[in-house]
Simulated scan of single mutants.
Amino acid sequence: MSDDGKHGTLTLGQSSDEGDQSFSERLRIALSGESPHAFSKRSGIGDSTMRKYLLGSMPGLDNLLIIANAANVTLDWLAAGKGPMRPSTGQFLAFTASDAEHRQVLLPRYDIRASAGSGTLVVSEDVEEHFAVGRDWLRRNLPPWAPLNARVGVLENGGDSMWPTIQDGDLLMIVQDVEWRIVERGGIFVFTLDDRLLLKRLQVLDNGDLRIISDNKVYEPMTVLRSDIPNRLILHGQVFFAGGKPRNYPS
């Protein structure tokens, strides 16, 4: 850092001797004047998550790789202030050069909770972080109808209305861009009903009405009339995986 308090300029291949910089300072340099909002939109990292990083929070490896790739800086420099800021000519970033890119897929985890209860008011859909999932595992576990290039997202369940199938705090993987014919087959879906985000089992009745069912029998089912479905319901995706940490531990 220069004596006048301004950030010095690092040219291609030049090593940084500013190891005392914080991650947030290096992140601001990496943005190169681009607004955090624009960078968030371009990289896929949510606005609120970027604000946390700029205030001093340290991202995990997956988000470090995404930021380094989007900002065209080296991972070592971004994470620890070591080595050159920019990759040398002909050098690829770890995120794009690694063989792991071909074996893994980064799934966005949205900063919202799907409610297995009375419903969660939808405020935002920022991407909080990314999960690395094996590509082969994903192909094996996707629903049979889903294409190999299907959009998949991760979010957290909140509530007990889908117990015992899905528990409070479980992470959900959903296939997005679901057509109505998939709903007609039945299954567990994430959807917005009257501006509230819900996780429920859906069943299309013979007359076209939609039955909304909780696996926990404490909760009564709901019915949406066929004529009301277009105005009241927005379908986000079908759940194909749910899991969390073990609930019972040996003493």
Rank of each mutant, 00 (worst) to 15 (best):
R113K: 10
W163Y: 08
E125S: 10
N149D: 04
V123S: 04
W145D: 12
R139K: 08
W137F: 06
E129L: 06
G158I: 00
A116Q: 08
P147N: 09
D111V: 10
V152T: 09
D126A: 09
L148D: 01
N149M: 03
R151S: 06
M162T: 00
G158M: 04
E129S: 15
P144G: 04
D126W: 03
E156Q: 13
A150R: 01
P143G: 13
S124H: 09
T120G: 12
G158R: 14
H130K: 15
L107A: 14
W145Y: 15
R109S: 06
W137A: 06
G134R: 11
A132N: 05
P144C: 01
G134C: 12
P108R: 07
P108T: 09
P108D: 11
I166K: 09
S115F: 03
A150E: 10
L142F: 11
R139Q: 04
R135I: 07
V122L: 15
L121N: 15
N149K: 01
R113T: 14
E156M: 08
E128D: 15
G117T: 00
E128V: 04
R140E: 08
Y110L: 08
D126T: 13
R140T: 12
L142E: 12
I166V: 06
V123N: 11
E128F: 15
I166C: 11
F131T: 05
S118H: 03
L148S: 07
E129T: 11
V122D: 13
S118I: 03
I112F: 13
N157E: 08
V122N: 02
A146Q: 12
R135W: 05
V122P: 09
L138C: 14
M162V: 05
A132S: 14
G153E: 00
V154T: 15
T120L: 04
N141K: 02
N149A: 02
Y110N: 05
D168T: 00
W145M: 13
L148T: 02
Q167N: 03
N157A: 12
R140Y: 07
W163L: 08
R151C: 01
P147S: 04
G117Y: 12
E129V: 02
E129Q: 09
H130T: 15
N157F: 06
A116M: 03
P108Q: 13
I112T: 15
W163M: 05
L148N: 07
